[in-house]
């Protein structure tokens, strides 16, 4: 069988901490297999050798927070056959989307000596608000096995196995006792998409919602239960204002308690 031409892969960074793209380097055991299966053409965290586009696959990390990036993402899209966003920043705006609930000019005036030089957008927004995205991989950070699964699926022309059900399903598959029912620990698992392997409940902690809202989440019902368990409005708002604060269901729910 003649050797298939390896797909060209590019990794792009927008407003982010680099943690998600480092998940690719974190693949360790599987990294050689990845390098064998794709041609890493543009990945500054891994190599200074950068090849020009077009690319078969672009992994995009980070949110759009500056006018410059709002332009740049279109250039990335034009050069990419498939564009996959990775992580809470790229899929929901990230922790920096906390600015969306305040006036960003107040922040810049406090943080920078010369805020006049700062050119920033009012809001931090996910990539799909700007360009068409082929697939979104959730998480803060993403799960490296899910990343490998998406790449494997793409290389083998199949659908990736990335369920959109709750963290609860993964807890139950793992045999974890429920921390919310069994211990009275507030947990975002019932409204959060699985993918992390239910890490926090496995260590008797409530879920922090790092993978963002699951399909059809019912946040008002969970909020009511949290309040019945003694969580006050301030802490309820904080719980939803994490890495996925600007994901629509989380945003709406936190605002309803902030103003309520």
């Amino acid at each position: 069988m003649p050797a298939k031409k390896k797909p060209k892969l590019a990794v792009w960074k927008f407003a982010s901490c680099d943690g998600c793209q480092l998940s690719l380097l974190d693949c360790e055991d599987e990294l050689l297999a990845v390098a064998g299966a794709v041609h890493i053409a543009n990945f500054p965290e891994a190599s200074r050798a950068v090849e020009k586009g077009p690319y078969d696959v672009s992994l995009v990390e980070g949110s759009i927070t500056t006018p410059h990036d709002a332009e740049r993402i279109h250039k990335v899209r034009r050069q990419s056959k498939y564009l996959i966003t990775i992580g809470a920043c790229a899929t929901a705006g990230g922790i920096q989307a906390l600015r969306n609930f305040k006036d960003v000019r107040e922040f810049t005036s406090i943080v920078y000596a010369n805020p006049d030089y700062i050119e920033t957008l009012e809001r931090s927004t996910p990539i799909r608000h700007h360009v068409f995205v082929d697939f979104e991989l959730r998480g803060c950070p993403i799960n490296k096995y899910q990343l490998l699964e998406v790449i494997s699926a793409l290389l083998n022309n199949r659908k990736p196995v990335i369920p959109e059900h709750s963290v609860c399903v993964d807890c139950k598959l793992a045999g974890n006792p429920c921390v919310m029912v069994g211990h009275g620990t507030p947990c975002l698992g019932p409204v959060t998409q699985a993918g992390c392997g239910a890490i926090c409940p496995s260590f008797n902690r409530g879920c922090y919602g790092c993978f963002g809202p699951k399909e059809t989440p019912n946040l008002p019902s969970l909020s009511e239960q949290w309040q019945a368990m003694g969580v006050d409005k301030t802490n309820l708002v904080r719980a939803y204002r994490g890495f996925n604060a600007f994901a629509e269901p989380f945003r709406k729910e936190s605002e309803s308690h902030e103003n309520g």
């Binding site: 059900h165 709750s166 609860c168 399903v169 139950k172 598959l173 429920c178 698992g189 019932p190 409204v191 699951k214 059809t216 989440p217 019912n218 008002p220 019902s221 969970l222």
Partner: peptide
């Protein structure tokens, strides 16, 4: 439906 989280816990247990 207003209360149901569709979290699947009932079916799993």
């Amino acid at each position: 439906a207003k209360r149901c989280l569709s979290c699947s816990n009932c079916t799993m247990v």
